Simulated scan of single mutants.
Amino acid sequence: MKSKMNVLFAAGLLSLGMASAFAAELTAGEVRKVDTEQGKVTLKHEAIKNLDMPPMTMVFRAEKPELLKDLKPGDKVRFAAQSVSGAIVVTEIQQAK
């Protein structure tokens, strides 16, 4: 029983560590173009720290196309992006306040 508890405890710690590894800090940006049919958004953005990427304007694929439904060019946003299978993907995006 003690061994089973240790395994569960270790699995819990591992999942917490992995969750924090996937959590991305939000980055400020401005929407330049939205292509909802293709699930893509062009953003002029600040440095993306978790990707070690300098500020630039680039096209991102949205993890879920519905993330883009309320966006329009000129919107100020905060977003999270991650590298998924070699592509940079927006995993979260929200209007900046």
Results as ranks from 00 to 15, higher is better:
residue 2 K to A: 15
residue 3 S to R: 10
residue 3 S to G: 04
residue 5 M to G: 03
residue 7 V to Q: 11
residue 7 V to G: 03
residue 7 V to W: 08
residue 7 V to R: 11
residue 8 L to N: 08
residue 9 F to W: 05
residue 9 F to T: 11
residue 9 F to E: 11
residue 9 F to N: 08
residue 12 G to Y: 11
residue 13 L to A: 10
residue 13 L to W: 07
residue 13 L to D: 07
residue 14 L to S: 10
residue 14 L to D: 07
residue 15 S to E: 14
residue 15 S to K: 10
residue 16 L to C: 15
residue 16 L to Q: 12
residue 17 G to P: 09
residue 17 G to Q: 13
residue 17 G to D: 09
residue 18 M to C: 12
residue 19 A to E: 14
residue 20 S to E: 14
residue 20 S to W: 15
residue 20 S to P: 02
residue 21 A to L: 15
residue 22 F to I: 13
residue 23 A to V: 11
residue 23 A to L: 15
residue 24 A to L: 04
residue 24 A to K: 10
residue 25 E to L: 05
residue 25 E to W: 01
residue 26 L to Y: 02
residue 27 T to P: 06
residue 28 A to Y: 04
residue 30 E to W: 00
residue 31 V to L: 05
residue 31 V to W: 06
residue 33 K to T: 10
residue 33 K to R: 11
residue 34 V to F: 04
residue 34 V to T: 01
residue 35 D to Q: 01
residue 37 E to G: 03
residue 40 K to V: 01
residue 41 V to E: 01
residue 41 V to H: 00
residue 42 T to Y: 02
residue 43 L to Y: 04
residue 44 K to R: 15
residue 44 K to G: 09
residue 45 H to A: 09
residue 45 H to E: 08
residue 46 E to S: 15
residue 46 E to C: 08
residue 46 E to W: 04
residue 47 A to K: 11
residue 49 K to Q: 13
residue 49 K to R: 11
residue 50 N to E: 09
residue 53 M to Y: 07
residue 53 M to P: 05
residue 54 P to L: 12
residue 56 M to R: 10
residue 56 M to N: 09
residue 57 T to I: 10
residue 57 T to L: 08
residue 57 T to G: 09
residue 58 M to L: 04
residue 60 F to I: 05
residue 61 R to N: 04
residue 64 K to C: 02
residue 66 E to V: 00
residue 66 E to W: 05
residue 67 L to C: 00
residue 68 L to D: 01
residue 68 L to G: 02
residue 69 K to S: 05
residue 70 D to C: 01
residue 71 L to M: 07
residue 73 P to S: 14
residue 74 G to I: 11
residue 74 G to Y: 11
residue 74 G to S: 13
residue 75 D to G: 05
residue 76 K to Y: 08
residue 76 K to S: 14
residue 77 V to R: 03
residue 77 V to N: 00
residue 79 F to D: 05
residue 81 A to I: 06
residue 81 A to P: 03
residue 81 A to V: 04
residue 82 Q to T: 09
residue 82 Q to F: 00
residue 83 S to I: 09
residue 84 V to M: 13
residue 84 V to E: 14
residue 85 S to V: 06
residue 85 S to T: 05
residue 86 G to F: 05
residue 86 G to R: 06
residue 89 V to R: 10
residue 90 V to T: 06
residue 90 V to H: 02
residue 92 E to Y: 09
residue 92 E to M: 08
residue 93 I to H: 04
residue 94 Q to T: 08
residue 94 Q to E: 08
residue 94 Q to W: 06
residue 95 Q to Y: 01
residue 95 Q to W: 02
residue 96 A to D: 14
residue 96 A to G: 03
